[in-house]
Simulated assay, not measured.
Amino acid sequence: MILQNKPKLTVVGAGPGDADLITLKAIKALQNADVVLYDALVNSELLMYASQAEQIFVGKRKGCYSYQQEQINELIVQRAQTKGHVVRLKGGDPFIFGRGAEEMEYAAQYGIETAMVPGISSSLAVPAYQNVPLTKRGSSESFWVITGTTKSHKISNDVALAAKSTATVVILMGMSKLPQIVSLFKAEGKHELPVAIIQNGTTPEEKIGVGTVDTIETVVAENGLSNPAIIVLGEVVRHRETLQKVYAEAKQTTTSI
Rank of each mutant, 00 (worst) to 15 (best):
I181G: 13
K186T: 00
A128C: 03
P179E: 03
L30G: 12
Q71S: 06
R99C: 08
V213H: 07
A160M: 06
F97D: 06
S66N: 14
L75Q: 09
A19G: 00
V11S: 02
V126Y: 01
A229V: 05
T150S: 09
T203S: 12
Q4P: 02
F185H: 03
A101L: 11
Q71M: 05
A229Q: 09
P194S: 09
T135Y: 02
V42Q: 00
N32F: 04
P118N: 06
L233M: 15
Q52P: 00
K186A: 00
R88K: 09
S183V: 01
N200T: 01
G119D: 14
K28D: 06
S226I: 00
Q55G: 13
H153Y: 10
A108N: 04
A115F: 12
G98C: 12
G13V: 08
P133A: 03
S121E: 10
Y106T: 10
F57G: 14
D93I: 14
V126L: 04
S156N: 04
Q81N: 10
I120Q: 02
T114D: 01
E70Y: 07
L9Y: 06
L21P: 12
T254D: 10
A196C: 04
Q252Y: 07
V170N: 09
A221M: 15
K90Y: 13
L75M: 08
I181A: 08
E241L: 11
M116C: 14
T212V: 08
A163D: 05
I171C: 09
K28S: 15
M173K: 01
Q252C: 06
T147E: 04
Y49I: 07
L225S: 01
I208P: 00
T23Y: 09
W144R: 01
N32H: 03
A167G: 10
H191N: 13
T168L: 11
Y38N: 05
N223C: 11
K60N: 13
G234D: 05
V132P: 01
T82G: 13
I208C: 12
T254K: 12
P194Y: 02
G63V: 08
G119E: 15
Q55Y: 06
P118R: 08
A33Q: 04
I198Q: 00
G189L: 07
R88M: 14
Y247G: 00
T242I: 12
V213P: 04
E205T: 08
I257W: 08
F97T: 03
Q180A: 03
K190D: 03
I22R: 04
F57K: 07
I216W: 00
I56M: 06
I197D: 09
T168M: 09
I72E: 02
I181D: 13
T218Y: 00
R240Q: 15
G119K: 15
V213W: 05
I230N: 00
P94F: 06
Q52K: 11
Y49D: 02
A14N: 06
D93Q: 11
I56R: 12
P179N: 06
E102A: 14
T202F: 02
I2V: 10
E113C: 04
S122Q: 05
K207F: 03
T242K: 08
Y247R: 14
